[in-house]
Design a protein around this nucleic acid. Sequence first.
DNA 1: GCGACAG
DNA 2: ATCTTGTCGC
Length: 226
Amino acid sequence: MSLFYPSESLQHKLHNTLRKLSKKVLVADTLPNEVRLVAGLDVAYRGDVGFGALAVYDVRKRAFVEVLVEPTIVRIPYIPSLLSFREAPPMLKVLSKAQVAADVYLVNGLGALHPDGCGLASYIGVVTNVPTIGVTKGLLRGNYTFSRRGGYEFIANERGVVLGARIRLNKRSLYVTVGHMVSAERAVEVVHPLLGKSYLPIPLLKAHEEATKAARGSSWVRQSQL
DNA sequence: GCGACAG
DNA sequence: ATCTTGTCGC
């Protein structure tokens, strides 16, 4: 209804914003020895309304500690490499309502393995100052280098910096990338054990289901509650 | 120059 | 991402 399509010049500015934020991304493991609470963040849509979902999972209890969904009006369309400006608002809103702080947040999107060095996962991490890991089914176009180490296929960007790993499942692949305050090695170590029957780690699958359920279920979303 | 490209 | 039922395959 009111999507604002960024002009060419504005898109350049948005890319500059991402490049500037990329300098603040911390590519190093800062997670506690035992990662107990892992959260999943995703967004599903219904027209111009984005339903941001947060699911905090307790690895030890194997149970969800908190599940939240918050609607937000999205104003920017999906543009490859500029996903943050469309999906970060819904994610930041649901995060602001959270009662529990997780040890790390799994974000449905790329991390630092992005043309501007700052994908959605890194964006969320830098802006909120929390550890994040990006999880996607694919990568954006770019020159990457794959190398096998310790059972995983690590991925380095054009500069040779290792920022992610590829996990092959059945036919597809799952890409795990450094978001913020985590290393590629630790990121994949955290995500891999959370892969159940689905190709998505448990927290993300839950967030995805909740977001999708909310998007389909309520066509009666009132503007007043946005 | 054109196309492809996270969700 | 979303619009959408049944159906082919491991």
